[in-house]
Amino acid sequence: MAETSLNTPTSERSRLRVSLDSDFAYQFRKSPVAIVSAVTVLIMVLCAVFAPLIAPYNPFDPASLNLMNGFSKPMEPNAFTGDTFWLGTDDQGRDVFSTILYGMRISLFVGAAAVLFAMVLGISLGLIAGYVGGWVETIIMRVADVQLTFPAILVAMLIFGVAKGITPVEYRDQMAIWVLIIAIGLSDWVQFARVVRGATLVEKNKEYVQAARLIGRGPGAIMIKHILPNVLSPVLVIATISLALAIIAEATLSFLGVGAPPTQPSLGTLIRIGQGFLFSGEWWILLFPAVTLLALALSVNLLGDWLRDALNPRLR
C-alpha cells in the first residue's frame, strides 16, 4: 500500500525528483561518510600524483639506497646510520613510506586505466546490443554471460599468462603494466555492458529517440548523441565501484606474482614482498602497504555506494 500513497499527479512527482537531482551537492554535505571517503580518496590521489615531490626518498634510485639502512624500525633511528624513517625500511633499505607513495601511483594508474578500458568497451558493446538488438545483441550478451561464469581474476590470469608467453623476455617488465590493465579491463567490461544495454532498452523506446529517428538521424548519432548521455549516471556508479575492485584485482595479481614486477612495485607487490618478513619480526614492511590498500579500496567503495544512493532517489 505504500506505493499507492505516492499517487500524486505526475507533474508534482517529477518536480520533486527534479529538485532532488539538483540537490546533489546538498546530499553530499549531509553525508559524513561521503565527505570522509571523498577526502581520503582525494588525498591519496594527490599523494600518488605528486609522489616524486612528496616522497622523502626515491626508492628506485639505487644510488640513494644504503643497504645499511635495511630493516629500520618505524620512527626509530637506524642503529648503524642514525637515519630515521617514518614507516621504517625494507630489507634493501628502501623507505617504506616512499615505496607506498610510488606503489599507490602504480595501483591507481592500473586501476583507473583498467576501468576506463572496461568502460569504453562495455559502453560501446552495451549500446550496440541494446539499440541494434537481434542477433548482434544475442552474440554480445551470450559472450558476456560466458565470461561471467569465470571468476574475473581467473580471466585476468589467463590473459596475463598468454601475454607473457608471446612477449619477448626483454620487454616483459615494460609490458607488464599494460598487460595488467588489459587483463583487468577485459574481465570487467561485462557489468558495464549489461547496465548500459538495460538502460538503452528503456531509453530507445522513449519518444525523444523516436523523434530523432523521424528526422532521419542514423543509429550512430542516436546512440552517441541521444542515448549515451542518458545512460551515463548508472555507469558512473559502476565505474567507481569497479575502480575499487580493479585496485584489489591488481593487488591480488601482483601478490600472486603475475602482476606488477618488483622493479615497478604496486601496493600488491609490496604486500607480497612484505609477507616474507612478517614472521621474522619486520611487520611494518607488510602492514603499512596493506593498510593503505585497505583505506584506498574502502573509501572508493563507500564513495561509490553513496553515489549510487544519491543518483537514485527511489532507493531511499
Binding site: 505526475t10 519518444e207 525523444y208 523516436q210 523523434a211 530523432a212 523521424l214 541521444h226 548521455p229 542518458n230
Partner: peptide, 16 residues
Amino acid sequence: IQMIFQDPFASLNPRW
C-alpha cells in the same frame, strides 16, 4: 513530416 508525441516528459531529451 513531423510528429508530436503524447508524453511531454519522454519526448524531449533530458540532457539537451
